[in-house]
Amino acid sequence: MYEFIKGKVQYIHPEYIVIENNGIGYQITTPNPYSYTNDFGQEKIIYTYTYVREDIFALYGFQSREEKLLFTKLLSVTGIGPKGALAILASGEPGQVVQAIENEDEAFLIKFPGVGKKTARQIILDLKGKLPNILPDYFPNLFNADQQKELESGNGDFDEAVLALLALGYSEREIKKVSTQLKKENLSTDQYIRKGLQLLLKS
């Protein structure tokens, strides 16, 4: 429903923060409300997820889109509710969580409240291999050193096209096969995507 809310941090509670926007105070549950202490009275963008059930209507908020995406993925795991997902994200290191899932590190996951061995195994079964496509920033080895150097050279249109192809469900391995050929072109983001799709369908 809401992608984000931009407003001033007006109140900090152990479970939530209140963001004031145009005279309305939005109560937003966050993984670690006190991480906003230095932002008190300042304007912030909070990326929000609206959680609706028969007897619940709640807003959950995050510092980044990546954190929000990881929250939604954790909610899709059997046995993980909003409270459990928030506890996992409260460490403020979503990258560590992602790596633990990819490395099947159950010992790391069971450290979180409410996550036992069974739930940790379920998280790994449900999410391993699915996170690189939606959270590429947490996978610095998505491309090899030469390709990473090319990405950092400043071709924003190409970078955006790669992210769009990942979001469509193509794997990093498939994209690597066509990225060299794509980089030879000087195209817009849309043209890179179209050309990339043509190459991927032929490969």
Results as ranks from 00 to 15, higher is better:
Met1Asp: 06
Tyr2Ser: 02
Glu3Ser: 09
Phe4Gly: 03
Ile5Trp: 10
Ile5Asn: 03
Val9Asp: 09
Gln10Trp: 00
Gln10Glu: 13
Tyr11Lys: 02
Tyr11Ser: 03
Tyr11Pro: 00
Tyr11Cys: 02
Ile12Lys: 01
Glu15Cys: 04
Glu20His: 04
Glu20Pro: 00
Asn21Pro: 02
Asn22Asp: 15
Gly23Ala: 15
Ile24Gln: 14
Gly25Gln: 10
Gln27Glu: 15
Thr30Ala: 04
Pro31Tyr: 02
Pro33His: 01
Tyr34Pro: 00
Tyr34Leu: 06
Ser35Lys: 00
Thr37Arg: 09
Thr37Asp: 06
Asp39Ile: 00
Ile46Pro: 03
Tyr47Asp: 12
Thr48Val: 15
Tyr49Arg: 15
Val52Lys: 11
Arg53Val: 12
Glu54Ile: 15
Glu54Met: 11
Leu59Arg: 06
Leu59Glu: 06
Leu59Asn: 03
Phe62Ile: 07
Ser64Met: 12
Ser64Ile: 13
Arg65Gln: 14
Arg65Leu: 14
Arg65Met: 05
Glu66Ala: 14
Glu67Gly: 09
Lys68Tyr: 05
Leu70Lys: 11
Leu70Ile: 10
Phe71Lys: 11
Thr72Trp: 03
Thr72Ala: 04
Leu75Met: 15
Ser76Val: 07
Ser76Ile: 10
Val77Arg: 10
Gly79Pro: 10
Gly79Asp: 10
Pro82Gly: 13
Ala85Glu: 09
Ala85His: 08
Leu86Cys: 11
Ala87Ser: 09
Ala87Trp: 03
Ile88Leu: 15
Ala90Ile: 07
Ser91Tyr: 09
Pro94Cys: 07
Gln96Asp: 07
Val98Cys: 06
Val98Ser: 03
Gln99Ile: 00
Gln99Pro: 00
Glu102Ala: 05
Asn103Leu: 05
Asn103Thr: 02
Glu106Leu: 11
Glu106Gly: 01
Phe108Leu: 08
Ile110Val: 13
Phe112Cys: 13
Phe112Tyr: 15
Phe112Arg: 09
Lys117Gln: 03
Lys117Ser: 04
Ala120Asp: 02
Arg121Val: 01
Gln122Cys: 00
Ile123Glu: 07
Ile123His: 01
Ile124Cys: 12
Leu127Ala: 13
Lys128Met: 05
Gly129Trp: 10
Lys130Ile: 02
Pro132Ala: 04
Pro136Met: 13
Asp137Phe: 04
Tyr138Gly: 07
Pro140Phe: 01
Pro140Tyr: 05
Asn141Trp: 00
Asn141His: 12
Phe143Trp: 05
Asn144Glu: 03
Gln148Glu: 12
Glu150Val: 07
Glu150Ala: 10
Leu151Asn: 01
Leu151Thr: 05
Leu151His: 08
Ser153Asn: 05
Ser153Cys: 01
Asn155Val: 07
Gly156Pro: 00
Gly156Ile: 11
Gly156Asp: 13
Phe158Thr: 01
Phe158Lys: 04
Val162Thr: 01
Val162Phe: 12
Val162Gly: 04
Leu163Ser: 14
Leu165Glu: 07
Leu165Ser: 08
Leu165Lys: 05
Leu168Ile: 11
Leu168Trp: 04
Gly169Val: 13
Ser171Pro: 04
Glu174Tyr: 06
Glu174Lys: 13
Ile175Asn: 02
Lys176Trp: 03
Val178Glu: 05
Val178Leu: 12
Thr180Lys: 01
Lys184Thr: 08
Lys184Trp: 00
Glu185Leu: 09
Asn186Ala: 10
Ser188Thr: 11
Ser188Tyr: 09
Gln191Ala: 12
Arg194His: 04
Lys195Met: 12
Gln198Asn: 15
Leu199Ile: 07
Leu200Cys: 13
Lys202Trp: 08
Ser203Glu: 12
